[in-house]
């Protein structure tokens, strides 16, 4: 359930407005870069709304997460209602509806990693970063999330940080891994 916590609706206005809205407070918009990328996706599908997942991915890539304003902007651009866009955005656990840190740690909590004691890694990460699943460090560097099977169960326990996969992870390795991102 915790995985979905980040995925629930949140305005997150405090972090968002300054950077990503126009002069008119709260006016949703997409940047030219985002629009070009979305147009490219729209061209490959039979109707606009079929590109909504791609659009969410694109906007998240640029902004780190999907704010209410981003939902509104995507909805307007793809001629959907914001509720429709949000129903898709909240379904997929890797579309973030709340701000995340600069790096997202996904710790596998599925069965092979359970047997190989991912719990020890979780305890150590909680101590080192002072956050629990679903939380972000005070310096905005890391967000820690549980994730289901990463598909490398023969090297359990496993975790991913951004695009990097770490296998056969031990508590002793954590400092060295985290250092790369700080």
């Amino acid at each position: 359930m915790i995985a979905q916590k980040l995925n629930t609706k949140d305005t997150g206005k405090a972090n968002n407005t300054a950077l990503y809205t126009t002069g008119v407070a709260g006016e949703p918009y997409l940047t030219d870069l985002e629009r070009t990328a979305i147009d490219h996706e729209v061209a490959q599908v039979p109707y606009k709304s079929a590109a909504v997942i791609e659009a969410l991915k694109i906007v998240q890539q640029h902004r780190g997460w999907i704010s209410d304003d981003s939902v509104g902007a995507i909805a307007a651009y793809l001629q959907m209602s914001p509720a429709e866009v949000d129903s898709v955005a909240t379904f997929y656990n890797l579309i973030f509806r709340k701000p995340v840190g600069r790096h997202v740690i996904l710790l596998c909590d599925s069965i092979s990693c359970y047997v190989m004691k991912y719990g020890d890694l979780y305890t150590a990460l909680q101590e080192k970063l002072n956050i629990k699943f679903g939380e972000t460090t005070g310096d905005q560097c890391f967000t820690l999330l549980p994730n289901c099977c990463l598909g490398c169960c023969d090297h359990a326990p496993a975790l991913m940080i951004d695009n990097d996969l770490y296998k056969d992870v031990t508590v002793a390795m954590l400092d060295c891994i985290l250092k790369k991102y700080t």
Binding site: I111, C149, G151, C152, C153
Partner: peptide, 11 residues
């Protein structure tokens, strides 16, 4: 999609 926990063959 290979997301069945414990599965890593298609990879």
């Amino acid at each position: 999609d290979e997301m069945e926990p414990g599965t890593f063959k298609d990879r």
